[in-house]
Amino acid sequence: MLVFRPRNSSNVEAFFVSTGIVALGEMGDKTQLLALLLAARFKRPLPIILGILVATLANHAMAGAVGDWVAKAMGPDLLRWVIGGSFLAMAVWMLIPDQIDDDEGTGKERFGVFGTTVIAFFVAEMGDKTQIATVALAARYTDLLAVVAGTTLGMMLANVPAVFLGDQVARKVSMKLVHAIAAAIFAVLGVLTLLNIGKLF
């Protein structure tokens, strides 16, 4: 029987799992809706994209550090249950549609397009699905840099098209299907973790 080996995985695996999960999870998320709102308001894609990148790196680095600390503070058995439960909770959360507050991302124009985007995205990402996913992934995988790079790339893959294509993306892609796929991935990861099954765990 394979035993749970927390934080024992390749950098490539950590990077690609983090990228895929966050890219799927971000589809239809409130921060993607915020990207659409900012693009419609300012019509300046480059500073918006740079702002999303900076805000995501800062937010996910912080979340990753929390996940790394959690992993070091717990023993392997407790960590397995915490990570497995977190993945299952994320699977359920992925099925709940997000809404953006009417005042989210508004105001603060005195900081310019870039500054407004950084502030709005950093605040909107606090406690968001993708931030919590980053904490869980950083607790699961050894390489914090690979996790943060992967989750950041996942955010950019979901949000850059939203900035350029706007509402066309939302109309053509089934958010329910995307969220269902993301939920299934989290559920599989959670079950594999709890049961000590599979190469990933």
Rank of each mutant, 00 (worst) to 15 (best):
I48P: 02
L37R: 13
W93F: 14
P6K: 04
L36Q: 12
A146T: 08
N159T: 10
G127M: 03
L144F: 06
K129N: 11
T19K: 05
V148K: 03
G112D: 00
K172M: 14
A14H: 02
V123M: 08
A40L: 15
A180L: 10
A73W: 12
G112N: 08
Y141F: 13
L189C: 07
I49W: 08
I100F: 08
K176S: 13
A65F: 10
T117C: 02
P47I: 03
Q99I: 13
L24S: 06
A158N: 05
V66W: 08
L2P: 14
M90V: 11
I21H: 05
V191F: 05
A89P: 03
A138F: 05
T106P: 11
V66F: 12
Q168S: 15
V22H: 05
G127Y: 02
G166L: 09
T117N: 03
Q168L: 15
V3M: 14
G112Q: 03
I119G: 06
M175R: 03
V135P: 01
P47E: 05
G105K: 01
M94F: 07
D68N: 15
A61W: 13
A149I: 08
V70P: 01
E26C: 08
A138R: 00
K72R: 14
I96L: 11
L144G: 02
R171Q: 14
F4W: 05
A182G: 02
T117H: 04
M90C: 10
G127K: 09
A136I: 02
G28K: 03
D167N: 14
T130A: 06
I48R: 03
L57T: 09
D68V: 15
